[in-house]
Design a protein around this nucleic acid. Structure first.
Length: 428
RNA sequence: GGAGAAAUGGCCGAGUGGCCGAUGGCGCACGCCUGGAAAGUGUGUAUACGGUAACGUAUCGAGGGUUCGAAUCCCUCUUUCUCCGCCA
């Protein structure tokens, strides 16, 4: 959610900024609502004040044993007017809430213009794209040949966009997850955390998935209302909902491995081959809760932490700055890391690192006590994948394949593979 | 799943219809006292919204209701604790 004060003081700026996202914001509608809100709120509070002071007078008169009937008659007149005003006020407030909750974050000045991903800006490349003297297979062919990836089994057990991993490839994904957790915890200073994979609506509201993006979620239960998490960002960031954090405890840095569940509504026909786009996938998520003044640097660092995993695995990648149209609803600025997939001959997203500034914090009421002012102020939140484990598995398979379809285990993963150096049809 | 008890400020805890945003204590902050410290002592110490401000309004787990007036009475829900059952 954006700062309501910004709307009151600089509506033109807000309108202009939202235009960058092609978000259709109607300032006249807002102003009309705000003017009514103010008038009705003042009126309501005046009536409440009248009632309170008269009720007090009744109490005092009663204590003195005086007759209070005249006072009672008088105060009763306020009753109806007050009730009407209160009802009207809460209706207006609710409308305002709905309006504000549906407005996306304001983009950072450095975010490039553009309506879709073609206009994302490449900032850097790392690593050498492997050159094979044979035709590179994709992970589907590799995985099928190795009898480690079974898409039909996923369909049989669940539905399309589910997969079953078996044997050394299943272990390879676990090794990837272990490497990520260990690296982020030991080298990058994150606290490992384990969280619920079902969350309530309030948590999803806090990080911005609700109310706008309910269609992207799997609802697991109506009573109580619980949803499968689309990312560990939701439960991890909601650790600090309604908290006031002491300055000395910041920054908070969490790393969390979890499965992620996405309905992929609206993605019909996209990435249907392989396990690029699944309803369920594993991911290691990085979350930082920081002082506002530190968020920009923390965002850069967190992105580097994700990059370090790609470097450890020696996977070629490029770093993209998302353009205005491709930046997520809650984000002010997002870097995507895209890994090279020889099977597709293309770079594909493997991590998305975003600075939300105070957008999530305002919805979460997540604050810190600023020693300079003594007041609770909103924190900034940052998160990113470090990395998506399923796609990392694909990247390792495709980049480390040989002419026979065997996969050499990257050095960094050897400690987690129990002595296995190569995954071949024979290794089980 | 069954039975019972409870939920008040950072923490403990008082408050059963009116002058209660809430006594008191602990903690914390700033003073006083002291050579310094401890002890003692004084003052302050929630959040949000509106207002230039004075100040006003709301909030005692959440939501609804009764009442001129609710922390206090009624209803629903949530959470916690104890006992029993079941279970990884």
């Amino acid at each position: 959610m954006l700062d309501p004060r910004l709307f009151r003081t600089d509506l033109d700026f807000v309108t202009e900024q939202l235009k960058r996202r092609s978000f259709n914001f109607n300032p006249e509608f807002y102003v009309d609502l705000e003017v009514r809100r103010k008038a009705v709120q003042i009126k309501t509070q005046e009536l409440q004040n009248e009632r309170n002071s008269r009720s007090k007078a009744i109490g005092q008169a009663k204590a003195k044993g005086q007759d209070v009937q005249a006072l009672l008659d008088e105060v009763q007149q306020f009753g109806d007017a007050l009730k009407t005003a209160e009802t009207e006020l809460s209706a207006i407030q609710q409308q305002m809430e709905v309006l504000m909750e549906g407005i996306p974050n304001i983009l950072d000045a450095s975010v490039p213009e553009g309506k879709s991903e073609e206009l994302n800006v490449e900032l850097s490349r790392w690593g050498d794209v492997p050159v094979f003297d044979f035709e590179a297979k994709d992970h589907v062919d590799l995985g099928t040949q190795l009898k480690g990836i079974d898409f039909e089994l996923g369909v049989k057990i669940a539905s399309s966009r589910f997969v079953v991993l078996t044997g050394p490839l299943a272990r390879l994904q676990r090794a990837i997850i272990q490497l990520m957790l260990d690296t982020h915890a030991a080298d990058h200073g994150y606290d490992e955390t384990y969280v619920p994979f079902l969350v309530n609506a309030q948590s999803l509201r806090g990080t911005g998935q609700l109310p706008k993006f309910e269609a992207d979620l799997f609802k697991a239960s109506d009573e109580p209302a619980l949803y499968l998490i689309p990312t560990a960002e939701v439960p991890v960031t909601n650790r600090v909902r309604d908290d006031i954090i002491e300055a000395k405890d910041l920054p908070l840095k969490y790393v969390c491995h979890s499965p992620c569940f996405r309905s992929e509504a609206g993605a019909y026909g996209r990435d249907v081959r392989g396990m690029i786009r699944q309803h369920q996938f594993e991911k290691v998520e990085l979350v930082q809760i920081v002082k506002p003044e530190d968020s920009e640097q923390a965002h850069e660092e967190l992105t580097q932490h994700a990059e370090n995993i790609l470097k450890k695995l020696n996977l070629p990648y490029r770093k993209m700055l998302l353009c205005a149209g491709d930046t997520g609803f809650s984000s002010a600025k997002t870097y995507d890391l895209e890994v090279w997939l020889p099977g597709q001959g293309a770079y594909r997203e493997i991590s998305s690192c975003s600075n939300f500034r105070d957008f999530q914090a305002r919805r979460l009421q997540a604050r810190w006590r600023n020693p300079e002012t003594g007041k609770p102020e909103l924190v900034h939140t940052i998160n990113g994948s470090g990395l998506a484990a399923g796609r990392t598995l694909i990247a390792v398979m495709e980049n480390y394949q040989d002419a026979d379809g065997n996969i050499t285990i990257p050095e960094a993963l050897l400690p987690y593979m129990g002595g296995l150096h190569v995954i071949s049809s024979g290794s089980n």
